[in-house]
């Protein structure tokens, strides 16, 4: 099965065994129903053990699955009348970011998200979901348009990072990201951000200055990839597994650090197992969150966003530490 991961192998094997037994009893004259029942009970427990204790590194693997649902997958389940808008009006249309207008349960909204491919061909077209400056500038153009027409903005975050390339540097990758952080701070409409896959550093944050930030249970959000951190820390990228734990990049860790507002539960084993059901989970939280935010005025939304980011960070004063040492 595609999208099967190392850590869930015991579950998959047991499930296979059960279906083999079922198949066997159909054709043979033996009654194995009590055996099957026992095994099914064991499967349930095993699933619970495995899927409720997913290790950070396993979450990284789930977040990176080629068949993990992308922005466009969710758009098709969550919104009606999606009309995609292309281009930054200056240089090009960066297909690593998609955006447009749509309706969410009747409410006009602007939707923007990183878009990666699911196969090599599409990934080349989408640059593996790693935007150039024009991608961020397209996103900003659409956000400003949403602001003008008073439409809430929903951002899906799913990128390994902003593209590290010559052309990207020439056209001001830094400035494009910085500009988005700055301008998103001033939007007078609700901005809701959802990390659906990998949230890679500044390239993710450039769509991430929202009033509310949610993460799918098995997504990650980090300042550097586990491989990158391992290369620096242990001078060896193969320590990525350790780095994934140390860096606190999972949804539960980030909720505890106050970086995100809430975790969106995933289908057992990961969102890819049932996109429609996963979209329903997202819809619930989007509805609730929009209902809250739509009560706020433009200025209240700006100060809500300001306070949200203003409070992030941990530090001490020297005087506090005297005596502690």
């Amino acid at each position: 099965m595609i999208g099967e991961l190392e850590f869930e192998r015991p579950v998959v094997e047991l499930r296979k065994k059960i279906s083999e037994l079922k198949e066997f009893t159909k054709n043979a004259d033996v009654d194995l129903s009590s055996e099957i029942k026992k095994l099914e009970g064991r499967l349930e427990k095993l699933e619970q053990d495995i899927y409720e204790n997913i290790k950070p590194w396993d979450r990284v693997q789930i977040a990176r699955l080629a068949n993990r649902p992308t922005t466009l997958d969710y758009i098709s389940f969550l919104f009606e009348d999606f009309f995609e808008c292309h281009g930054d009006r200056t240089f090009a249309d960066d297909e690593a970011i998609v955006g447009g207008i749509a309706k969410f349960k009747g409410l006009p909204v602007t939707v923007i998200g990183h878009q990666r491919g699911k196969d090599t061909k599409e990934n080349i077209r989408r640059n593996f979901g790693m935007p150039h400056p024009e991608g961020y500038r397209k996103a900003l153009r659409l956000m400003k348009q949403a602001d003008k027409f008073n439409r809430p903005i929903i951002c899906f975050i799913d990128t390994k990072g902003a593209y590290p390339g010559k052309a990207a540097e020439e056209r001001g990758q830094s400035e494009a990201i910085a500009r988005n952080l700055f301008e998103m701070a001033g939007l007078k409409v609700p901005v809701i951000c959802i990390v659906i896959g990998e949230g890679g550093s500044g390239g993710a944050l450039a769509l991430g200055v929202g009033n509310r930030i949610y993460m799918l249970e098995n997504s990650t959000y980090s300042v550097i990839s586990p491989e990158g951190a391992a290369a620096i820390l242990w001078k060896d990228a193969s320590f990525a597994k350790n780095a994934a734990e140390t860096m606190k990049i999972t949804a539960p860790d980030l909720k505890e650090l106050g970086v995100i507002d809430d975790i969106i539960p995933e289908i057992k084993g990961g969102a890819h197992k049932d996109v429609q059901k996963q979209a329903e989970e997202i819809e619930k939280i989007l509805s609730a969150s929009l209902q809250q935010l739509l009560k706020l005025s433009g200025d209240e939304l700006i100060s809500d966003r300001y306070n949200r980011f203003r409070s992030i960070g941990e530090f001490a004063l020297i005087n506090d530490l005297i005596g502690v040492k």
Partner: peptide, 12 residues
Amino acid sequence: GALSLMQMAKTS
């Protein structure tokens, strides 16, 4: 970690 990343947003 992500706390550092968020300082980009905070300062901006």
